[in-house]
Measured scan of single mutants.
Amino acid sequence: PDFTLHWNGITIHFKGIDEEQFRHLRELLDRGVSLEELEELAKELIK
């Protein structure tokens, strides 16, 4: 499924991740993950 997340004025689209992965990403963003960390995470998910 696809998810869209609005965070700090940025709209991020996640394609092909499951709800569990999306929930994990939201928790990280709510905790204050940096954009660099988010990019690293995205690379991991894409593999």
Rank of each mutant, 00 (worst) to 15 (best):
P1W: 15
P1Y: 15
D2V: 15
D2Q: 12
D2T: 15
D2I: 15
F3S: 01
F3D: 01
F3Q: 02
T4P: 01
T4N: 03
L5T: 01
L5R: 00
H6L: 11
H6W: 05
H6P: 01
H6A: 07
H6G: 03
W7F: 09
W7R: 05
W7Q: 04
W7S: 06
W7H: 08
N8W: 04
G9D: 03
G9K: 02
G9P: 00
G9M: 02
G9L: 01
G9T: 01
G9Q: 02
G9E: 02
I10D: 02
I10E: 05
I10W: 02
T11D: 06
T11N: 03
T11F: 07
T11Q: 08
I12K: 03
I12G: 01
I12V: 11
H13A: 09
F14P: 00
F14C: 02
F14W: 04
F14K: 00
K15P: 08
K15N: 11
K15Y: 15
K15G: 10
G16C: 06
G16P: 03
G16N: 11
G16A: 04
G16D: 09
I17C: 02
I17W: 03
D18T: 15
E19K: 10
E19I: 13
E19N: 08
E19D: 10
E19R: 10
E19S: 13
E20H: 15
E20G: 12
E20F: 15
E20Q: 15
E20P: 03
Q21H: 06
Q21F: 12
Q21A: 12
Q21D: 05
R23P: 01
R23D: 04
H24D: 02
H24G: 05
L25C: 02
L25V: 04
L25A: 01
R26L: 10
E27K: 14
E27W: 15
E27Q: 14
E27V: 13
E27T: 15
L28A: 12
L28D: 01
L28Q: 06
L28K: 05
L29H: 04
L29A: 11
L29F: 15
L29D: 00
D30G: 12
D30A: 15
D30E: 13
R31Q: 10
R31I: 07
G32F: 09
G32Y: 06
V33W: 15
S34V: 04
S34W: 07
L35Q: 04
L35Y: 08
L35S: 03
L35H: 04
L35A: 06
E36A: 12
E36V: 10
E36F: 13
E36H: 12
E36T: 11
E37K: 10
E37P: 01
L38T: 01
L38W: 05
L38C: 03
E39K: 11
E39G: 06
E39S: 08
E39C: 03
E40L: 11
E40P: 01
E40I: 10
L41I: 14
A42Y: 15
A42E: 02
A42P: 00
A42D: 01
A42L: 14
A42I: 14
K43G: 07
K43P: 05
K43M: 09
K43W: 08
E44P: 00
E44M: 12
E44A: 10
L45H: 04
L45V: 07
I46W: 04
I46T: 07
K47S: 14
K47Y: 06
K47C: 13
